[in-house]
Amino acid sequence: MSDSPLAQSLGDLITETRVFRDEVTLITTRERVVEVLTRLRDGEHFEVLTDLTAVDFHPAEPRFALVYLLTSLQRNMRVRIKCFLNGSERAAPTVSGVFASANWLEREVYDLFGIHFEGHPDLRRIVLPNDYVGHPLLKEVPVQVEEVSFTFNRRRIEAGKIFAGE
């Protein structure tokens, strides 16, 4: 564990700190994420939530990592906060109360990964159509949706397209 001044000021809220080429990553738990972000915003001048995203490590456990990227314009600094979720829980508290920009970013993570954000004001799909079934960035979803078409399987593939071959 490497020490960083940020981790020291947050104390127990951080379980691990990783520093790689001056990039600081603070690892916390999902219960403490809201408090960590609030403290960083109010006490350390990290006023911008640049991005909020998720990573799927299937089949490893804990399966998901939520990643929060914060920027401080005042101190010209960036920091990355991570928390891990088990495949079975797939839920985390919302941080849209801390950073308003998290509202849409959390909707995107919900849309593509199916992770629920408890207390989110309006958790709907944002990029995919409303009637879409499933969450396509999960590892169990196949990358390709259609077989590559050759002469031997072309007819079968085109059978699914109403207007093909007219």
């Binding site: 995919l128 990358v143 390709q144 949706v145 259609e146 109403i162 207007f163 071959g165």
Partner: peptide, 16 residues
């Protein structure tokens, strides 16, 4: 774009 986001040919929806 053989993926979830893109229609695999517009002949799925209109006659070409």
């Amino acid at each position: 774009f053989n993926n979830y986001a893109v229609v695999q040919g517009v002949d799925e929806i209109v006659p070409v």
